[in-house]
Write a protein that binds this DNA or RNA. Structure first.
Lengths: 199, 199
DNA sequence: GCGTGAACTGAACAACTGTTCAATACTCTG
DNA sequence: CAGAGTATTGAACAGTTGTTCAGTTCACGC
């Protein structure tokens, strides 16, 4: 963990913004609050990033780069990456909900990578065939991101110790079990859903 | 669909707040904006709800009641309920992320109801046994809520037509298939995860 | 009709917002 | 050392924020 003082002011501001934006939301965070966290004046924030919107975009790009840098290997790397960097996680969750441009790009990228990955698995026999490959990829990715976005709620009900890694692992394992063996032993719900859907 | 003018001013304000809070976030929404949407003065909003925070709590309670009223039968009823009421959905997603008291209560309630439901299914043989029943229930609920919270992203990649019901159904079906048959045909990922976890 | 209380309003207030600007401190190049 | 350019600041700005308040309109029981 790097200390706050050896970073350039610009980087300190960006980190402070990332944390504040993630914790309280962008609209609820003032430029002055970010400046105070970074130990600089509000004017300097604007000097470096032009405007609050510019600061937000800088955060977007930083998160995007950070995830792209770590996530080239496979999907699980992205998961580990996100588990490690809590402020990043929170910010990303907000960005996804607010529909920022960077978040939209990221979501699209991850979905497409996942769709290819699942198609490959299907060809090699370790992924079951799907009726709607696109919908499956989208749903799978949103499931991957769910504990991230709802991290506070999930963490609270699974022990809620500050070291979130343990609870994240517990949740990930439960998810993997459902995806491996299935949750339902027969297709009663699938049938019921189909029946309702055809109406 | 009820028209805006037959409602009491208080109800109109609450509905306007629900929509605005959900669309833009609470911090980004001003009391004056809500008042304008409801066709009243800003002072009247404060007269009825005391403060902006009071207005938020009223929204919380309203959402909680609306969901409780419809969701007593089983889980799928909650799903349909949420699909129908888009403004409610959006507001709930924000509330879950912000960790409001009502959202926390709701999440806890749903998890506990789900855990009992899954335990019953396990006893009756239509749900596969789980190593960690609690973690499974929490994860399952967060998966249920994922397309809700990430609705904009999911909708965009699955056609994005304004009638969101169609895409929601598509996503729900893909999810149900994964939960019924499983996604992975063998346990390679589960084994890999266990191996990493034990380190 | 009359009064009483609720619904409702416009104007005002202090605090805070993002942003600008002139001025100062700092760091490196020539 | 001179100077150019960057980093950094405090003070000020116009606009918006949540909230207050005195006053007006309205409906209804006596």
């Amino acid at each position: 963990m790097r200390s706050a003082s050896d970073l350039t002011a610009r980087a300190r501001i960006r980190d402070a913004a990332l944390a504040r934006f993630g914790a309280d939301g962008i609209a609820a965070t003032s430029v002055r609050a970010v400046a105070a966290d970074a130990g600089v004046s509000a004017a300097l924030v604007l000097h470096h990033f032009g405007s609050k919107e510019g600061l937000r975009q800088a955060c977007d790009e930083y998160v995007l780069d950070a995830i792209r840098a770590g996530g080239d290997a496979d999907i699980s790397a992205l998961g580990e990456m996100l588990q490690a960097a809590t402020p990043l996680r929170r910010y990303l969750a907000r960005a996804l909900l607010d529909g920022s441009e960077a978040a939209t790009t990221l979501f699209t990228e991850v979905v497409e990578r996942t769709e290819r990955w699942l198609a490959q698995g299907e060809a090699e026999g370790w992924v079951r065939p799907a009726a709607d490959a696109r919908a499956r990829a989208v749903t799978y990715v949103s499931w991957l991101l769910a504990p991230l976005v709802l991290g506070d709620q999930v963490g609270r009900l699974l022990g809620g110790d500050p070291a979130e890694t343990a609870t994240a692992v517990r949740s990930a394992r439960a998810g993997l079990e459902m995806l491996t063996g299935g949750l339902f032993a027969d297709d009663r719900w699938l049938k019921a859903f189909t029946a309702v859907d055809e109406r």
